[in-house]
């Protein structure tokens, strides 16, 4: 084997080995990436509009959302997950603000950050009326804080 063919075969061999390793690494990463999430659906019904009171928002623990109902404007749904590190915020009626227990973030009723390390306002989710008359929340659809469903 002369120098030229050694170099060309060597380069081809290294390239093959390198791409094989890259593909294998990609396969490992893909293998570890879940194809199915066994998690609660992002779209779910929360009940009839009449189930919700005016005034202070209703907290749904399993869905981690706050449902607001306003006499003039209608329904809106806020995420109860703090945008800082994912703790569940709590709404206090004495100051009408959300407080996060982990790092002290405070959000206004509109979801805006009033204080603390939270980088973004709370998310608001789309809420619509399903055919059976129940409220339908879609956590995949983030809406502006001004979004309202008038029923």
């Amino acid at each position: 084997m002369n120098r030229r063919s050694f170099l060309s075969w060597g380069t081809a061999g290294m390239a093959t080995l390198g791409s094989a390793m890259a593909v294998s690494f990609g396969a490992v990463v893909r293998f570890m990436t879940p194809s199915v999430f066994y998690e609660p659906p992002q779209t779910f019904k929360i009940g009839k509009p009449l189930d919700f009171a005016y005034g202070a928002p209703t907290f749904l623990a399993d869905e981690k959302i706050y449902v607001f109902r306003d006499r003039d404007k209608g329904f809106s749904v806020a995420s109860a997950v703090c945008t800082h590190l994912g703790c569940t915020v709590k709404f206090f009626t004495n100051d009408d603000q959300f407080h996060c227990p982990c790092h002290g973030s405070i959000f206004a009723e509109s979801g805006k950050v009033v204080h603390g390390p939270a980088p973004r306002p709370l998310n608001w989710f789309e809420v619509t009326l399903a055919r059976d008359g129940q409220l339908l929340v879609d956590k995949d659809k983030i809406v502006p804080a001004s979004y309202r469903l008038m029923v």
Binding site: A61, K64, H84, L85, C87, T88, P101, P117
Partner: peptide, 27 residues
């Protein structure tokens, strides 16, 4: 209980220095 965050919620103690930093700025 995923629905109920204890108050305060703390990371393991050796990460609490990190959590203290994170309480000022996460990034």
């Amino acid at each position: 209980n995923p629905a109920k965050t204890p108050n305060p919620a703390k990371a393991p103690w050796y990460f609490l220095g990190l959590q203290e930093l994170v309480s000022h700025s996460a990034l």
